[in-house]
Design a binder for these strands. Structure first.
Length: 467
RNA sequence: GGCCCGUUCGUCUAUCGGUUAGGACACCAGGUUUUCAACCUGGGAAGAGGGGUUCGACUCCCCUACGGGCUGCCA
């Protein structure tokens, strides 16, 4: 009964998937999925000069990593060019468009002359708008929309409110080029209409375009979709996001070790809010995501908060799922894969590891003890902890560990006993233990490490360090 | 230049005419501790400026400043 929501993400394949584009896709996906609607994907590849199949592949890969799945086949805008031309001619037939024989040189000359005269916004009015077809020359022509010359076009935008554009400031835009290919303004409307898109959620760099596109809907007698123009994302300095801010491509974030779940959470909160809700699952986001919660000002990227958000998600994730996601990171970052022993130890170490890592590189670093194999090579700080006194204490430890029951409580009792027996605090004993077990001075709890690698490996590492 | 949009702690934001302007990240201090984190407690921190409207403005209107977008036979 109620018309189902259909949203779409329509990137142009001229490069990687931009972080801002990723958020636009996320908003569209959240909105549709949260309402049982459909989320479609269309590649706007009509610019043959700049579009590449590699970029398309990168975009699909990025969306897949972020966990944004789309319904149906990916639509190629270029493949639909005949339909676009068909609509342009339909507009001609309806009298809402006309053939224009003005050349680009003539138009440029007009604009230059107007500017020279002090007209700051030269609107080119084609002399062919109301020309008699009998006067048409045998020459290339474009098809222009016959836009209303007076009055206003009002965009009812779910984010920006009512935006009014005076029609006199808009020219008769070209819908079909002289080579018969469609312009973006035409293609986007035809495709959105044909695909049944009900809600157009996109960057506010398209806000002005919406007025002209609305004219195309009107010219064809089609229903105008719900508009929602969201602000762009800026770099930490408030300037437009660019390469000098570092990571702008989504795949870079994956390679930096941010979990997709954390990225989704962070990106959802960037420019959208629902009261004090900060950390949430995707299901929770879907349940409450709406257009009215989107802010109107551009948001800045904050890596600290991204990290913090990711840290919460790493801690929230199920151990097995976390390990799998971690391995995905390893592959994406071009780091060596885990072998059986490493995987087994990491899985067992996960409960204590995941509480303390914000990113996967951090998780790997904290899990260093679980990934190495003997002989353990101590780093500089760890080597200092292994002085002769410490080594002799470690040596005295092994017999007791041989018969201990391998639980945290039992180990704690034994180690505390050793420490007090040697007249030192537990901290003093922990340092050489860390060095022996992990080769590091900074590690997880010594008990957790011992439990993870097991009795035999523990004793072996301690013995090797003691010699 | 013109048109359009925006402006609450350093950052992301809540507030939808009446609040000690709330939360989160970050920062600072203290606590806990087995190192690092994590965690707990506390702290400093905001309505761009100026006019209106109103009994009362962060909230509504206007101007200015600043930021962004658009201004293509690009998307």
């Amino acid at each position: 009964m109620s018309n189902p929501v259909v949203t779409r993400f329509a990137p142009s394949p001229t490069g990687y998937l931009h972080i801002g584009g990723a958020r636009t896709a996320l908003f569209n996906w959240l909105y549709a999925r949260g309402r049982g609607g459909r989320f479609l994907l269309r590649i706007e590849d009509t610019d043959r000069e700049r579009s590449t199949p590699e970029a398309t592949a990168a975009i699909l890969k990025g969306l897949t990593w972020l966990g944004l799945d789309w319904d149906g086949e990916v639509v190629s805008q270029f493949a639909r060019k005949d339909r676009h031309a068909e609509v342009a001619h339909a507009m001609l037939a309806r009298g809402t468009a006309y053939r224009c024989f003005s050349t680009q040189a003539e138009i440029e000359a007009f604009r230059a002359a107007e500017k020279a005269r002090g007209v700051s916004y030269p609107v080119f009015l084609s002399p062919w708008r109301d020309a008699d077809p009998a006067s048409y020359p045998d020459a290339p022509y474009v098809i222009r929309m016959k836009a209303p010359r007076s009055g206003e076009t009002v965009i009812h935008d779910q984010v920006q409110g009512e935006v009014t554009i005076r029609n006199e400031t808009l020219d008769d835009m070209i819908v079909l080029r002289s080579d018969g290919t469609p312009t973006y303004m035409l293609a986007v409307v035809v495709d959105d209409h044909d695909m049944g898109v009900t809600h157009v959620i996109r960057g506010d760099d398209h806000l002005n375009n919406a007025a002209r596109q609305q004219m195309v809907y009107d010219a064809m007698g089609w229903a105008v979709p719900v508009w929602a123009h969201i602000p762009l994302i800026h770099g930490p300095d408030g300037k437009k996001l660019s390469k000098r801010h570092g990571a702008t491509g989504l795949e870079e974030y994956q390679a930096m070790g941010y979990p997709a779940a954390g990225m989704r959470n962070y990106l959802t909160r960037l420019g959208w809010a629902h009261g004090d809700m900060e950390i949430f699952t995707t299901a929770e986001a879907m349940a409450v995501f709406d257009l009215s919660g989107i802010g109107r000002a551009p948001a800045r990227l904050d890596f600290k908060k991204l990290e913090n958000t990711c840290g919460h998600h790493i801690a929230m994730m199920d151990d097995a799922a976390l390990l799998q996601d971690l391995e995905g990171y390893l592959a994406a970052a071009g780091r060596p894969a885990l072998d059986e022993t490493q995987r087994d130890r990491m899985l067992r170490a996960m409960p204590s590891l995941k509480e303390r890592a914000k990113t996967y590189p951090e998780l790997i670093e904290k899990g260093h003890f679980a990934l190495i194999s003997r002989p353990v090579v101590p780093d500089e700080a760890a080597a200092r902890a292994l002085d002769s006194v410490s080594r002799s204490i470690l040596k005295s430890l092994t017999p007791q560990l041989q018969n201990a029951s391998w639980t945290k409580d039992a180990l704690e009792t034994i180690l505390n006993g050793i420490a007090s027996g040697n007249g030192i605090g537990f901290g003093k004993l922990a340092a050489p233990l860390r060095a022996a077990l992990a080769g590091r001075s900074v590690t997880p709890s010594v008990f957790d490490m011992m439990l993870v690698i097991g009795r035999d490996e523990t004793i072996a590492r301690l013995s090797e360090a003691a010699d």
